[in-house]
Design a protein around this nucleic acid. Structure first.
Length: 426
RNA sequence: GGAGGAGUCGGAUAAUGGUAUUCCAGCGGCUUGCUAAGCCGUGGCGAUUUGUCGCUUGUGGGUUCGAAUCCCACCUCCUCCGCCA
């Protein structure tokens, strides 16, 4: 959400942002609602003032005012509902260096690391490797969980747990507070992170939200989050920090659920696009300053890159263009990792500067040195998302003999250097 | 699964239908000086013609000239019994 004053004063800019982000929104209508809203607030407050004054003196006259007041109040409520609905749709202004483009074709590669592996034998994809080495079972996954279901088995389990440990310990050493977050979330959290109202169809809603201690059903719907970003942000909703508390740095681990309704028929095979996965995510709150939050975005992006360099996986960094970034974002990078079976890079990380677009929705503020209350800037980025990252690991580290080397950085967590490892077989 | 309570500023607390009290903490200022003390100011949100005005007692409604107080729904917490990874 943006400041309505900012929208009033920069309506042409906002209209341009809507156009370049591919968002259809009638800003003039929003501004007309805003005008009506303020008129009605003035009227209703004036009546309330008189009513309160008269209430003490003359009760009959106060009663007459009450009817007018009620009428205005009803009208105001209607306008405000419409106004608030639109305010949630107003996109954030993208940074000056964001490429302008209609969709992913406008994204820009800005960095490349690592040597793409060359194989002198016919390679297998991770699906084949997973089957041959008994690491992934898609057939049983679909049988038990349905489309896009999967089981990880044996060394793949340890690989995933090792990756989590590596990521968590690394972020902890960098001064991030650690959390394991809930994934069953109330609606306000998803409005807060910006996944609602647009994008609602990608979030699962729980049909039976459960019972309370007193035996009654919970009436408020619950949703399964698609990322730990949402609960991490909502953890701090309603908080006013001291400026000296900033930056707030938190690293969260959670399962993630995505219906992928907009992606039917896309990436239907393998570990790439799944309904449920797990992810280590990190967020930062900093001062309300574009320069500072953009610097944090660079630092966070480097954390993602560092993980891939630890794993020895070749990657590239993409700067996302206006038309491919979400409504709430000011600036966004994807990091893509080399996936031999695709013969290309595939997205494994995503870093975004949301500025105060989320913190306004969630009411996350700080008192600056002058005593002024401001909204924090919020950023989020992947540390490691699994099992998608197993695709490049399994495929890049495969050997001619059909075995797979374990990336060196993970060996201490797994206790073996190659897959299969007799150590974990029963 | 059963029974009963409770939600007032960061913490504590008063107000049983008459317009939210007091204390502590924090922050700002002042005074006195000796290991600190005292005094004054200070919640948040919104509108504004910058004078102010409105809202804010968990949330949303209702009754009323007037609601923290009465009614309805929701959210949350606590106590006791039972069950449970």
């Amino acid at each position: 959400m943006l400041d309505i004053k900012f929208i009033r004063e920069n309506s042409d800019k906002i209209k341009e942002v809507c156009e370049k982000k591919g968002i259809e929104l009638d800003i003039d209508y929003l501004l007309s609602l805003d005008k009506k809203r303020r008129d009605l607030i003035k009227k209703s407050e004036g009546l309330r003032f008189q009513q309160k004054k008269l209430g003490k003196e003359e009760r009959k006259k106060a009663k007459d005012i009450k009817d007018d007041f009620k009428k205005i109040k009803t009208e105001l409520k209607k306008i405000e509902e419409e106004y608030e609905k639109l305010m949630l749709l107003v996109p954030n202004v993208y940074s000056d260096d964001t490429p302008i483009g209609p969709d992913e074709s406008g994204n820009k590669e800005i960095y490349r690391w690592g040597k793409v592996p060359k194989f002198d034998f016919p390679i297998k994809d991770h699906i084949q490797l997973g089957k041959d080495l008994d690491l992934i079972d898609f057939e049983k996954g679909v049988k038990v969980s349905g489309f896009r279901g999967y089981f990880l088995k044996n060394e793949a389990v340890l690989l995933q747990l090792g990756l989590i440990m590596h990521a968590i310990l690394k972020m902890s050493a960098k001064g991030f507070k650690l959390m394991i977050t809930p994934t069953l979330l109330k609606e306000f959290t998803l409005i807060g992170s910006g996944h609602f109202p647009v994008g609602k169809e990608d979030i699962y809603q729980v049909a039976n939200p459960g019972k309370l201690a007193d035996g009654n059903f919970i009436k408020e719907p619950l949703f399964l989050t698609g990322t730990a970003e949402t609960p991490l942000l909502a953890y701090f909703s309603g908080t006013t920090f001291k400026e000296s508390d900033l930056p707030i740095k938190v690293c969260g681990f959670s399962p993630c659920y995505r219906s992928e309704i907009g992606s039917y028929g896309k990436d239907t095979k393998g570990l790439y696009r799944l309904h449920e996965f797990v992810k280590v995510e990190h967020i930062v709150f900093c001062k309300n300053d574009n320069k500072e939050s953009d610097q944090w975005l660079e630092k966070m992006k480097l954390n993602s890159q560092e993980i891939l360099e630890d794993l020895g996986l070749p990657y590239r960094v993409i700067q996302i263009c206006s038309g491919d970034m979400g409504a709430g974002k000011r600036k966004m990078y994807d990091v893509e990792t080399w996936m031999p079976s695709r013969n290309s890079y595939g997205e494994t990380h995503s870093a975004s500067n949301m500025t105060d677009w989320q913190s306004r929705r969630l009411n996350i503020k700080y008192k600056d040195s002058k005593g002024e209350i401001k909204y924090v800037h919020a950023l989020n980025d992947t540390v490691v998302a699994m099992p998608r990252i197993l695709i490049p690991i399994l495929e890049c580290y495969q050997r001619k003999d059909g075995k797979i080397d374990v990336p060196k950085v993970l060996q201490k967590y797994l206790g073996f250097k190659k897959i299969p490892s007799s150590d974990v077989r029963i």
